[in-house]
Nucleic acid binder design. Structure first.
Lengths: 345, 345
DNA sequence: AGGAACATTTAGATCGGTCCAAATCCGAAC
DNA sequence: GTTCGGATTTGGACCGATCTAAATGTTCCT
C-alpha cells in the first residue's frame, strides 16, 4: 500500500507484472498455482502481490474462462429460522468450495421469484439452489433459469422439472411419531395442523395414516384438524380436538410451531400437555427443547441440509447430462417429555 | 429459443446485433434504454432479444463500465432470527435498486470473517454491509476490504474505522424498560444477562444505570448478572438473582433470549414471571408475543433496519468523500404481561 | 446546390483476466 | 559445436459488454 500506483486506480495483474518484470501471462499462472512457473519467479510475484495490495478480479476471470464461481440461492422465506439455518449451511459449504453465494429472497411470492431469478441469472451463476415460493410454476421457473444452468430444488416439489431435488422424508417422520405414540399405549391419536393442500402436509398425513393402519386402527375424520402453520392459529384451534367423543389422547402435529401453539391451547383448556395429553412436532426448532414441557419432535438438521444442497449442486456441475437425482433425507425422532403415556381413565 | 444458434453456446449481444443487422454498439444502447436510438430500431432489437432468449451478462458490463451491481452482505449469525430478518430486508431493498446481494456468513468467527471478506471482495462489490463477528478488529477488516469500497457497519461498533454505522439505541431502550418498571413501583431492579464486554451490553447497562440514577436509586453490583446471550445459560443463572438479600423484584434483561430463559428459570424456582417477578427483554423476536406470559420488550424492526442499511450504503456510493454517518435508530417499548407491578410483600 | 444542425449509428479500443501456440533458456546427449 | 527435450516464459487474441469519437444520414435554410 506504500506504492504511489496504489493511490486511486485499482491494482491489476498488469501492474504486478510490470512491478516485477515478468509478463502478464506468468502472473496469471502464479495466480492459478500452476506448477509450470519457477519457484523463484513465483516468490517474486507473490511478494509483489503483497506489496501492491493486489485483489484478484474473479468476474474478469470467469468472463474469459467461462467458469463461474458463484451459485444463486433463492429462498422463499428467510425469516423462517429453518430456512435461515439452511441458507447458512449452503453458504458455509459453497464458501469452502471457493464459490460465492448470490442471495435472493422471494417472501413466498412467485412473482418476486421470477424477478429475482432473472436478476440473478444475469450474474451467470454456475448453478441455482431454489427453495420454491408457494405456487411456483416449473415452466415459468425454467424459462427464467434457462436450460443450461443446473438447478437443485429444495423442500417443495416442483412437478416434472427434470431437476435434482432434495427433500425431507415427511412420510416416514410422521410415521415414526405416530408409532412412538402407539408404542406408549395411545390408540386415539389426532393429526393436528397444516394446510392439507401443501405437499409436505399431505405426505405427513400419509405417514400418520400408514402407522395407524399398520396397528389396525382407522383414521377418524374428526381427528384431522387443519390450521395455518402458526402458533397462534394452532392455539385457537385446540378445542376442535375435543368437539366430539371419543376425544383423542394424543396428537401428531404438522410442525413445531403448531405443536407449541397446541400446547398453549391445551393449557388454556385446563389440560396439561405431557401429562394429560401427548404432543409431537416436526422440525426440531431451537425452542422445541426449551418449551415446557420439552417437545418430542423430528429433527431435520437444516444446516446439514444446506451443506448437502450445496454439495449436490456442485456435483451436478461435473455431471451435467446425468439423470436427475431425487434425494430424500431421513428425519430423526427426538423423544422429550411432551409425549407421555396415556393417563388411566 | 427456436433458433439453432441458441443450441449450445450462450447468446451474446453480438448474436443479437447480427440477427437484426445493426452494430453491437446499437444493441448496447438499446439495453441501456438510451434515448439516442430510433424507436423502430429499438423494437427490432427487442424482438430479437425475445427470439434468441438473450440474457444480459452483467459481469461483463461492470468490468468495462467499472460500475459494480452487487453489494456484499456479511452476517455474523444467520441462524439468529434477528439477523436473518435483517438480511431479508437488505436483500429486498438491494434487489429493488437493481443490485444483487453477495452473501457471506461468518458464524461469529473473526477468522472466517477475514476469509469471507477476502473472497467477496474478489467479486468487486460496490459496497459492503457488515454485521461484525465478535472480536472483529477494525484494522484487519480494513485490510481485507481496502480503502476504496464503502462499508456500512451494522449493530456492533468497530472502533475508529471511519465507516458509516447503523445501530440501535441500546442505551435509550434499556432506559425505557427500566423507567417502565420504576413507574410500576419497582425499586429493586436487576440487569440480567449478556457479556459486559460487548458494546451493546455496555450501552444497555448504561441506560439502565441512568434510569436508576434519575430515580435516585443506586446500582447494586450483586444485581448485575452476566450470562452468555442464550436461553439455556440464562435459565441456569436465574438463581444468581436471589443469592443475597434483598432480592430484586424485577429484571431488565439483555435480550429476549435471555429474558425467556430467565422466565423458565424463575418457574423452576417456583416464582411466576409476570406475577411474582417482572421481566423485560430486548429485540421483540416473534416468540416474545407468544410466550407465557407474553414478554415486554423493545422492538427494533430488523427488516426495516435491513432496508435502511441498504439505503445507507447505496447513498454512500454517490457521496464517497463525505464524512461518515453514525445512525442510531430509536427502539420502541412493547408492554406485555411479563412486566407486572411488584407484589405486596 | 451548399452547408449547418440534428438524429442515429458505428468502428475499434478497452475493462482485467485466461488461453493458446510459439518463443526462449538451459544443461545433457551425440 | 549442434541438436534435443524439458522447463519456463511470453505475445496477442479473446470473453461480452461499454466507451469514445467519428461517421453517416436527414432535414431544413439560405
Amino acid at each position: 500500500m506504500n506504492d504511489p500506483a496504489a493511490r486511486r486506480r485499482k491494482i491489476t495483474l498488469a501492474d504486478v507484472a510490470a512491478g516485477c518484470g515478468v509478463s502478464r501471462a506468468t502472473v496469471s499462472l502464479v495466480l492459478r498455482r500452476s506448477p509450470l512457473v519457477n519457484a523463484a519467479t513465483r516468490a517474486r510475484v507473490e511478494a509483489e502481490f503483497q506489496r501492491l495490495g493486489y485483489v484478484y478480479n474473479r468476474s474478469a476471470a470467469s468472463l474469459r474462462s467461462r467458469r463461474s464461481s458463484s451459485v444463486a440461492l433463492v429462498i422463499n422465506d428467510l425469516s423462517n429460522p429453518f430456512f435461515a439455518e439452511f441458507a447458512a449451511g449452503v453458504d458455509e459449504a459453497l464458501a469452502a468450495a471457493g464459490y460465492v453465494t448470490l442471495l435472493g429472497s422471494t417472501g413466498e411470492s412467485a412473482e418476486r421469484q421470477q424477478a429475482v431469478l432473472a436478476s440473478l441469472m444475469e450474474h451467470d451463476p454456475a448453478g441455482v439452489i431454489l427453495s420454491p415460493a408457494e405456487g411456483s410454476d416449473a415452466r415459468r421457473v425454467c424459462q427464467a433459469v434457462g436450460a443450461h444452468t443446473p438447478v437443485l430444488v429444495f423442500n417443495r416439489e416442483l412437478a416434472a422439472s427434470g431437476w435434482d431435488h432434495l427433500g425431507l422424508d415427511n412420510r416416514d417422520g410422521a410415521r415414526q411419531a405416530t408409532e412412538h405414540l402407539l408404542a406408549l399405549g395411545h390408540t386415539r391419536i389426532a393429526f393436528f395442523g397444516g394446510h392439507a393442500g401443501s405437499s409436505s402436509c399431505r405426505q405427513r398425513r400419509e405417514g400418520y395414516a400408514a402407522a395407524l393402519a399398520a396397528a389396525g386402527l382407522a383414521v377418524q375424520p374428526q381427528w384431522l384438524v387443519e390450521t395455518a402453520p402458526t402458533r397462534l392459529e394452532a392455539a385457537g384451534q385446540a378445542g376442535a380436538l375435543f368437539a366430539r367423543d371419543p376425544a383423542p389422547t394424543a396428537a401428531v402435529c404438522y410442525n413445531d410451531a403448531v405443536a407449541l401453539g397446541l400446547m398453549l391451547g391445551l393449557l388454556a383448556r385446563g389440560r396439561r400437555p405431557g401429562v394429560d395429553f401427548a404432543v409431537t412436532g416436526f422440525d426440531d426448532i431451537p425452542e422445541a427443547a426449551l418449551s415446557v414441557p420439552p417437545l418430542t419432535t423430528l429433527a431435520a438438521d437444516p444446516r446439514a441440509r444446506g451443506r448437502q444442497a450445496a454439495a449436490l449442486v456442485l456435483a451436478r456441475l461435473g455431471q451435467r447430462e446425468a439423470i436427475a437425482v431425487q434425494t430424500i433425507v431421513p428425519v430423526q425422532l427426538r423423544v422429550r417429555a411432551s409425549s407421555c403415556a396415556p393417563g388411566r381413565p
